[in-house]
Write a protein that binds this DNA or RNA. Structure first.
Lengths: 191, 191
DNA sequence: ACCTTTCTTGAACTGTTGGTCTAAAACGTG
DNA sequence: CACGTTTTAGACCAACAGTTCAAGAAAGGT
């Protein structure tokens, strides 16, 4: 029928996501996106309509990736407290392993765009709430298994954890592992 | 001698700070700065050399303002736990009272620039560490006054509080007061 | 009344931005 | 192997970025 696309949408999306992640939405120009993806500007616009639309697809991809990651981390064997601590530590480790600090794409986008753009704000809000849900589920499981104090409100504590994580990823821009690890331990002391 | 400056450097700086705060460094153009300050682009460059230099002065002003604020908040009468909770709540309230969410200028800048710019990163790091110091001092005072458990590590808990605050200001971009208040209570449960 | 100095202003400048368009090339199909 | 359709690379565009500059304007010192 027609000429097929030479590039794989998913790998292009993934590379574009990396570019947006390290440089921000405004900080990533079409030229940079072309360079990062190896696909020319023209093709990029042909395939994704606009920089904005491409960005939203990148956000979705990011969210899906952390969803997979979270699923794995929350299913790790071991006591609840250690499981949560290990999960947070692994996120921090991943951040610090990067040659350039870049934080969390969702948090970064909240800071950069949520104030001006209610649509993006709502989308980010949904994503963050989903993360909170994963934490809450793990805590409830801990309570069922007798691992976690019964008087702990799972929802409230999950929100606290999500907030701690949001903070960590900002703090990781300027701090090193020991401080961040200590923060994780302190935040989890109540479990 | 020479023609005097028509504007007051401090009010110009303060208005420029507001502009950077709501729109970010890259998101604030010289034209916007001129508009926000009421001073023409040319004069702005004459007085502050470059957008970058102006921004650093704004950062310093911001830090000085929160230093004053923190001094007041940490000296409030009442038990330590309530004092800290009230301090965090007042920051959250101030964020939510704004017509446009804008987070924390230090955190926002960390996210936007720290990855690329080691100088800025170091400066932000110093500012954040100073904030941690204020929390630590208040906790130590609480311990001296018998208000706070002796086995709490003031430094570690202060870092946790600074991290919680950093998180709150990102979460405030997309969440409302009840969630944020609950997070504050949970984070302070150990005091 | 003039001189010097620093200030203000607006225009001008260069590079880049986000985005469009086109002409040529590439492909599956019949 | 020609068809009709798509993709592609790159030229192209107006707008705007950050910055500079020449010209004039307001003070004090002489």
């Amino acid at each position: 029928m027609s000429r097929p696309r030479r590039f794989d949408d998913d790998v292009v999306l993934s590379r574009a996501m990396e570019a947006f992640w390290t440089n921000g939405y405004a900080g990533t120009s079409p030229a940079q996106l072309a360079e990062a993806t190896g696909v020319s500007k023209g093709s990029l616009y042909n395939a994704f309509s606009s920089k904005r639309a491409l960005f939203e697809k990148c956000l979705d991809l990011y969210h899906q990736q952390i969803r997979e990651l979270a699923k794995g981390l929350m299913d790790h064997p071991g006591p609840t407290r250690e499981c949560l601590a290990e999960a947070l530590r692994s996120v921090v480790d991943a951040d610090l392993a990067q040659p350039q600090r870049r934080g969390c794409l969702i948090g970064n986008t909240a800071v950069e765009m949520a104030g001006q753009d209610p649509d993006i704000a709502a989308k980010l809000r949904r994503m963050q709430d989903e993360s909170t849900g994963w934490f809450a589920a793990r805590i409830e499981r801990g309570q069922r298994e007798g691992d976690v104090r019964r008087d702990l409100d799972p929802r409230a504590f999950a929100e606290h954890l999500a907030n701690t994580l949001a903070g960590l990823r900002v703090m990781a821009m300027t701090h090193e592992a020991p401080v961040l690890y200590r923060i994780i331990d302190t935040a989890l002391a109540a479990v």
